[in-house]
Structure formats: structure tokens, C-alpha cells
Amino acid sequence: MGAGNKRKNIKIGLNVGIVLKQDQGTGKITRGVVKRILTNSSTHPHGIKVQLQDGCVGRVKDIYASDGTSQEK
């Protein structure tokens, strides 16, 4: 299970990559900063659902370090 599947790894203000509902078929990543955590359970197999500061909602696939590199790989 990746870091984006565990709620404890997601914090408000974190730079993440999410997959929007309409992009689930392609897996296109949208980057942004977490504004709200929407998933209440401690884990989710498809990623924790969050809302970004720009209002986009999706499931976390990547968590980025402050230098912009992915921490998932």
C-alpha cells in the first residue's frame, strides 16, 4: 500500500498529486496543495480523497517533497 493510501501520511498544506474522478480512466495526475482531507477511514485502497486549495477533489496518488520530487517511488 502506497503512502497516498494511508490517512496518517496526508497533512493539510502537503504538496500532492491526485487523480480527479473524470481522469480515473487515464490516470492523469493533477498537482496541488491539500486544503481538506475528505476520507475519514485510516486507509483506502484507491487513495485518500482530498480537496486541493484550488477546489479540485480527487484521490492521492503521489506525495511530493518540498523540492518537488515524488516520495512514492
Score class of each variant (00 low, 15 high):
19 V>I: 14
27 G>S: 12
29 I>M: 09
30 T>S: 06
48 I>F: 08
51 Q>S: 08
58 G>Q: 10
35 K>F: 06
31 R>C: 07
60 V>N: 11
10 I>M: 09
33 V>M: 14
18 I>P: 02
27 G>V: 15
61 K>H: 11
54 D>Q: 11
15 N>Q: 11
22 Q>R: 11
13 G>T: 07
63 I>S: 08
41 S>Q: 12
32 G>K: 03
54 D>W: 07
21 K>S: 05
60 V>Y: 11
49 K>N: 11
17 G>P: 12
36 R>C: 11
34 V>D: 01
12 I>N: 02
43 T>A: 06
12 I>P: 00
47 G>W: 04
23 D>V: 05
64 Y>E: 07
13 G>F: 06
24 Q>T: 00
39 T>I: 04
49 K>T: 13
19 V>H: 07
41 S>Y: 06
54 D>A: 07
60 V>A: 13
12 I>Y: 01
12 I>E: 03
42 S>W: 12
10 I>Q: 07
36 R>D: 15
41 S>I: 01
62 D>R: 12
25 G>H: 04
38 L>F: 03
22 Q>A: 12
37 I>R: 01
38 L>S: 03
62 D>F: 07
41 S>E: 13
39 T>Q: 03
23 D>P: 00
55 G>E: 08
44 H>Y: 12
51 Q>E: 14
23 D>H: 09
52 L>V: 05
39 T>V: 03
32 G>T: 10
46 H>W: 00
49 K>F: 10
42 S>E: 15
17 G>A: 11
63 I>V: 14
43 T>P: 00
55 G>V: 04
58 G>A: 12
43 T>G: 02
47 G>E: 04
58 G>E: 11
39 T>N: 04
36 R>S: 14
48 I>P: 01
24 Q>N: 07
13 G>E: 02
29 I>L: 13
11 K>D: 10
56 C>R: 06
59 R>N: 13
56 C>T: 13
61 K>I: 08
25 G>C: 11
64 Y>R: 11
58 G>I: 04
21 K>H: 01
16 V>W: 09
16 V>F: 13
37 I>P: 00
56 C>L: 02
44 H>D: 13
28 K>F: 01
23 D>F: 09
52 L>T: 03
50 V>I: 09
51 Q>V: 04
17 G>T: 06
16 V>N: 14
63 I>A: 12
21 K>M: 01
54 D>E: 13
62 D>G: 04
56 C>V: 04
29 I>D: 07
52 L>W: 01
11 K>M: 09
56 C>F: 01
43 T>V: 05
46 H>A: 09
27 G>N: 12
28 K>L: 03
45 P>S: 15
15 N>C: 08
43 T>H: 02
26 T>M: 02
54 D>K: 09
9 N>R: 09
44 H>W: 08
35 K>L: 11
9 N>P: 15
19 V>T: 10
39 T>C: 03
12 I>L: 02
18 I>Y: 08
56 C>W: 00
14 L>K: 07
63 I>M: 14
24 Q>G: 02
39 T>P: 06
57 V>P: 08
